[in-house]
Design a protein around this nucleic acid. Structure first.
Length: 257
DNA sequence: ATGGTTGTTGGACAA
């Protein structure tokens, strides 16, 4: 089973790029983030000819996630549990072929001095609690998305320059590690321990892409049973170099059947 | 130090 995750930075602005990539890469499941549209205005008709059913959770202007799947999706949840008053569209999870699969868009958290950073940490704590429940139920699961977390210095072009940023500061990395240490596998790093410049995001500004000044912030976290099936995890840089590119590029996960 | 870009949306705000 091939699962892709991609922060597309507006599904409508990115439609030609996304459709052409899906035609070539042909993943079974696609996890999208930052669709930047309301649920009802997701261009589902554009994806159905490619064989995908669409399960979007959107809101006006910002955020928004979706799962596209060639197999039926069951038992959808459309919010991360733990903070009912949080209405931001950042999480969708369903069962596909016996696997729980989530598309998540973890809060950016900048600027650190604002209320956005504690919101990010609370969101990570909620994710940790939810992972604990999934593990207790012994359901195999894959959590893919834009984590807005740089896990380690080798995942950023300038670690010192980013040391105070919400994506890289110690509290953020510690919380991410706490989640991993519940027993999850971060697929890309597990398969490619020595990889460098394996970025998934390059800012639009200051020539970050041509200078390869990137970050690795889009990840797949796997439960133990899903990790047993881990057959591949790759970053496809080619979409980032195209016209009208998203600032993120897709990551592809391959699970043995 | 500042500015550099893109998307939504029609002025900021988010990233």
């Amino acid at each position: 089973m091939k699962i892709a995750t991609w922060n597309v930075n507006s599904v409508k602005a990115r439609l030609p790029n996304v459709l052409s990539w899906l035609n070539a890469a042909a993943p079974d499941v696609v996890l999208l983030q930052e669709i930047k549209c309301e649920t009802a205005s997701f261009p589902a008709l554009e994806f159905e000819p490619l064989g995908y059913r669409v399960h979007a959770v959107g809101q006006k202007s910002y955020n928004g996630v979706a799962i596209l799947s060639r197999l039926p999706v069951e038992d959808l949840i459309e919010r991360l549990p733990g903070e009912p008053e949080d209405v931001q569209a950042r999480y969708v999870e369903g069962t596909i072929g016996g696997l729980r699969i989530a598309s998540l868009y973890l809060p950016n958290g900048n600027p650190v001095g604002s209320e956005k950073y504690p919101y990010k940490l609370r969101w990570m704590e909620r994710l940790k609690a939810h992972v604990g429940e999934l593990l207790a139920r012994e359901v195999p699961f894959v959590l893919g998305g834009d984590y807005n977390v740089i896990p380690a210095p080798e995942d950023v072009y300038d670690p010192e320059g980013w040391s105070g940023d919400a994506l890289f500061r110690r509290e953020t990395r510690e919380k991410f590690r706490e989640i991993l240490n519940l027993g999850l596998t971060e697929a890309f790093r597990a398969l490619h321990p020595a990889a460098r410049h394996a970025y998934t995001f390059w800012d639009y500004q200051a020539g970050a892409w041509p200078r390869d000044l990137g970050l690795r912030i889009d990840h797949f976290l796997l439960s133990p049973q899903a990790a047993d099936r881990l057959a591949g995890c790759t970053i496809d840089r080619s979409p980032r170099g195209q016209e009208k590119a998203s600032d993120h590029t897709p990551v592809l996960l391959d699970l043995a059947d």
